[in-house]
Amino acid sequence: MALDDPKTLVSTDWLEAHLRDPDLRILDGSWFLPTMEGDAKASYDAAHIPGARFFDIDEISDSRSSLPHMAPPVEKFVSRMRAMGVGDGHQVVVYDQMGIFSAPRVWWTFRLMGKTDIAVLDGGLPKWIAEGRETEDLPPMMRDRHMTVQRQANLVKDVTQVAHASKLGDYEIIDARAHGRFIGVDPEPRPGLRQGHIPGSKNVPYTELLHADGTMKTPEELRATFAAAGVDLAKPAITTCGSGVNAAMLALALEVAGNHDWAVYDGAWAEWGMYNDLKVATGEA
């Protein structure tokens, strides 16, 4: 049962009921890991929820960084959203083609920019299609819309801040990668990275946040999932993963579970795993 909270998660029923609202904007935020097959933009072009615009996570990013899809500068985000007709006064709903996978990254990017009227579609496009709801292959009509943003620096952490948190233990550092990657027995999908995890971090694989149908667990179930991994929800949290996408899924889950004091480590393992002077832990905690 979805929360139908337009600031976190909304159900397919909610979206269908609001589909023709003039101030609703729908985004397809699909993105695939390097090891996955598929072309997110081509799939969007073939079939998307009516009126949806495609949010390209790799393109709407910081092109000055050598790390994958780091958060975009404010100016770039604003210019891309204006061109897509997304601006002030809009309720945004973002979905992806896998259920809930990359859409939370778009949700977090909006939150980082101070925009809170955004929700992830619970169950995403697979649930929408499975329920026989409408799709189209037409590009949406887009008119420029003014957008004002105020970047929320507290929602993102850099490598220095994460290294301090790892040393001091004053944050719960939560890693969304699969357990085999976390303990260092399975290879990383990006070449050249060390294997293992940030010392002191806890492992909550992103798949454990979801029901079998691809919808997110209830707040009570999420709290139990975090507790089972040894996460103290009373402490502030830093979320991480391979490249910052599933870290945002943990952030969304924390928000739904009632912990509002969280930040995403944007560089994630793509950064931490690259530098030999940063300590790496392996094996079980």
Rank of each mutant, 00 (worst) to 15 (best):
V185M: 03
A103M: 04
G267W: 09
L278N: 04
F54R: 00
F54T: 00
T8N: 09
K167R: 14
E172A: 13
S63M: 13
G273R: 06
D23T: 15
D170R: 04
G192T: 12
I49T: 10
R20W: 08
P72W: 04
A40T: 02
W31F: 14
I173M: 01
G244I: 02
S201A: 11
A224R: 12
P187K: 08
L222E: 07
R143E: 15
M81L: 12
A247V: 06
W269Y: 08
E16D: 13
D122K: 00
G29F: 15
P236S: 14
E16I: 09
G192W: 14
G214V: 12
A165N: 10
R190Q: 03
H69N: 01
D62H: 00
A165F: 13
P104N: 02
S61N: 03
D28W: 14
C241N: 07
S166M: 11
E75S: 12
S11V: 04
T240N: 02
D232A: 09
R133E: 02
G273A: 11
D4Q: 08
V280T: 15
L278M: 08
K167Y: 08
E271W: 12
P191T: 12
E221K: 10
P191N: 07
D23I: 10
G283Y: 05
V74W: 04
F110T: 04
A176V: 07
E75N: 14
D96R: 02
H179S: 10
L27E: 07
L254T: 04
L121R: 03
T116Q: 06
K167H: 13
D28P: 07
G89W: 00
G214A: 06
Q195D: 05
A229K: 05
T282N: 04
A263Q: 03
I198G: 02
R177N: 07
M70H: 04
K157P: 06
A212E: 15
L209P: 03
V106E: 07
A268I: 09
P104D: 00
W269T: 09
G132D: 00
T282R: 10
P104G: 02
K76D: 05
P6T: 12
D122E: 11
A224D: 05
P139G: 08
M113Q: 14
K115F: 15
A237T: 14
A130P: 10
E75Y: 05
M249R: 06
A270D: 01
L33K: 03
R80F: 11
V156K: 00
A42K: 01
K41S: 04
K41C: 05
G99S: 09
R223F: 14
D261P: 08
M141L: 15
H69F: 09
V92E: 00
I198M: 04
P199I: 06
Y171V: 02
F101E: 00
G242L: 12
K279P: 11
A268G: 03
G114A: 07
H69W: 09
P72A: 15
D4G: 12
D88V: 06
G89T: 01
R223L: 11
T148C: 11
L252W: 03
V93N: 00
H90N: 14
H48V: 05
